[in-house]
Simulated assay, not measured.
Amino acid sequence: MKVGIAAGYWGSSPPRHVERMVDEAEALGVDSFWTAETYGSDALTPLAWWGARTTSIKLGTAVCQMSARTPTALAMAAQTVDHLSGGRMIVGIGASGPQVVEGWYGQPYPRPLERTREYVEIMRAVWAREKPVAYQGRHYQLPFAGGTGLGKPLKSIVHPLRSDIPVYLGAEGPKNVALAAEIADGWTPLWFSPKSDEFYRAALAEGFARDGARRSESDFEIANTCWLVEHDDVEKAAARLKPTVALYAGGMGAKGANFHNDVFARMGWGEVCSEIQELYLSGRPELAAQAVPTEMVEDVALVGPADKIIDEIVGKWKKTCLTTLILGGWPKPENRERILDAVMS
């Protein structure tokens, strides 16, 4: 298993000490560095800014929201970073949810799987640079079918460093996971739990079995962000993540349209998720966080003393379908090499 490190997306301001973390991660042989976006900081600018100080670590987005950019715009950005980094870019994309897509970007959300398929096809056509890009899909048309009528197919001025930049799909539901296995080079789960491994293996197998599937199980990457909080007291470590779990399980989206809630419900936390969502949507996020059991946090994160974290990496996480464990937290200096070795050995 490979190991990655995540800077994620920002809160109210840029996270501190990322520069030092990236320097240390590259020196210790960490495979990849990842950024993210919601509706504040974007994923690409920090990736380029912090990635500029590196020479070997892969640079990935987990994820860029598709509605934030047209497929050609993201293809341009990806090939630009790929050139500047010497071929280290991984383009992680995701459909996000209706709350963000329609509320923040002002774009329609329906038929996200179909839209994802079109998006990826257009990006790959840009990078292949075999001919001017023309595409007529349900969601994207190149040239635009309307307007002045003066649009014409165009071919990228830039010759991509790689004509086939890796694309990973962010996915949580079984249909989207199967789509990732069918059309992408990798999958970036969110809130993956080792107890759900069999469920996800079945969804991936369905995608690999489809006609024209791009990859097989043997050459498909699965890179999951796993939050890590070290503390001698497990309860105190878990408490730091409970507000985040409550936000995703309870506050992201509307009742009946929260994909993160569905993920936790599949783990067996359905009744708890209903309570968390009820509290969060009624304006009581603090109580929602208090309703998150420590065991629910432990299902999806590494919390507690270093020895416990290492035991769980070896005993649970390395036995799953994951190929990269992206740590959403930089281990303490005294435990860093032991934790990284537990993943990589």
Rank of each mutant, 00 (worst) to 15 (best):
F144L: 11
P243E: 06
E337K: 15
V101Q: 10
L161F: 15
K195C: 08
F192L: 14
H260L: 05
E37K: 08
K58W: 10
V30P: 05
L241W: 07
G212K: 07
G60S: 07
E337G: 07
G283V: 04
A202C: 02
V229D: 10
L302N: 05
S193Q: 08
V297E: 07
F220N: 02
I309M: 03
T148H: 13
S282E: 14
V30F: 02
W34G: 06
G8A: 04
G253C: 08
E295L: 05
S85M: 00
L169R: 14
I183L: 10
S67E: 09
A301W: 02
K195M: 11
R338V: 03
P194I: 02
G94I: 09
T70L: 13
L247V: 03
E230Y: 00
M1A: 15
A134W: 06
D232V: 00
M252S: 13
G315V: 02
T54W: 04
W49I: 11
A178Q: 05
L228C: 05
I122T: 05
T72N: 09
C321T: 04
L228V: 06
L302V: 05
A25R: 07
T70E: 07
N224V: 13
G29A: 08
L204M: 13
L325D: 00
S13E: 09
Q141K: 12
K2V: 06
A205C: 08
P132T: 03
A48T: 13
P189F: 01
P174C: 05
W330S: 01
P166S: 08
W330P: 00
I309S: 00
S96I: 06
V234I: 12
A181G: 12
M123I: 01
F192P: 09
K332Y: 09
P305D: 08
P243A: 03
E118T: 03
E337D: 14
S56G: 14
K255R: 14
Q65G: 06
V120K: 01
T61C: 14
E182K: 13
E295R: 10
S193W: 01
T320V: 03
K316E: 14
V22C: 09
S345K: 15
N224Y: 05
G4C: 08
E37R: 12
E19G: 15
A254D: 10
G256K: 11
G186H: 06
E217K: 15
R129C: 11
T225M: 13
L169N: 08
G147Y: 07
V100K: 01
G328Q: 02
A128L: 05
A95K: 15
D233F: 00
T35M: 09
M252K: 06
V126H: 01
A43C: 15
S282I: 06
R336M: 05
G87K: 01
L302I: 03
R284G: 04
D42S: 12
G40Q: 09
F220L: 07
K131C: 07
S345D: 09
V263Y: 00
E172V: 10
G268I: 11
G87P: 03
L302Y: 03
K308N: 07
L247G: 04
V63G: 06
L279T: 02
S12T: 13
